[in-house]
């Protein structure tokens, strides 16, 4: 097992454990922190896959901006409450069972998916994830969605204003 493989497994386990911890933490602040860990792990994967731009963006946007936003909100609300009263036990069990079933179905499906056999994700090589190439594509082939996403932001902004503004 080479270093890449080791890294892959390490990052995967980290992501999964951190993801689970997001669920299990009682304190929402901890959840946020664990989520950030997940993001870091995923960014690690991106780097492994040689998608450097996305790795950075993921860190900056997600782990940085978005998660900080979450933290602010949680702090704003009241960090000290031992948060939520736990959900009804049965409902939780039902949720876990449903999720477990879903996962089982997923796994069995992927196992049957023979078209994915012998296919690998290229690690460490390839240049499509490089910022230059992405930038070129973004401003040539993907300029329309890029511009249109501005509408999305605009509406989100207007929305935030409408919702947030005090009457």
């Amino acid at each position: 097992m080479g270093i890449t493989q080791s890294l892959f497994w390490f990052l995967s386990v980290l992501a999964l454990v951190a993801a689970l911890m997001v669920l299990l933490s009682k304190n929402p602040v901890h959840s946020v922190l664990w989520l950030i860990v997940v993001f870091f792990a995923i960014s690690g994967h991106y780097i492994l896959l040689n998608a450097q731009f996305l790795a950075i963006v993921n860190l900056i946007v997600y782990a940085g901006a978005i998660m900080v936003l979450f933290l602010f909100v949680i702090m704003l609300m009241n960090p000290n409450t031992e948060t939520e009263p736990r959900k009804n036990f049965l409902v939780q069990i039902a949720g876990i069972v449903a999720g477990g079933c879903l996962l089982t179905v997923f796994i069995s499906l992927v196992k049957q998916a023979s078209e994915m056999n012998n296919k690998t994700a290229l690690l460490k090589t390839g240049n499509i994830g490089l910022i230059g190439n992405l930038g070129k594509a973004l401003f040539s082939d993907f300029v329309v969605p890029f511009e249109i996403s501005s509408v999305l932001f605009l509406s989100a902004m207007v929305g935030a204003v409408v919702i947030g503004k005090k009457n």
């Binding site: 409902v91 039902a94 949720g95 449903a98 999720g99 079933c101 879903l102 179905v105």
Partner: peptide, 9 residues
């Protein structure tokens, strides 16, 4: 959402 997930399954 639980019902939705069940139906997804």
């Amino acid at each position: 959402i639980l019902i939705m997930v069940v139906f997804i399954i």
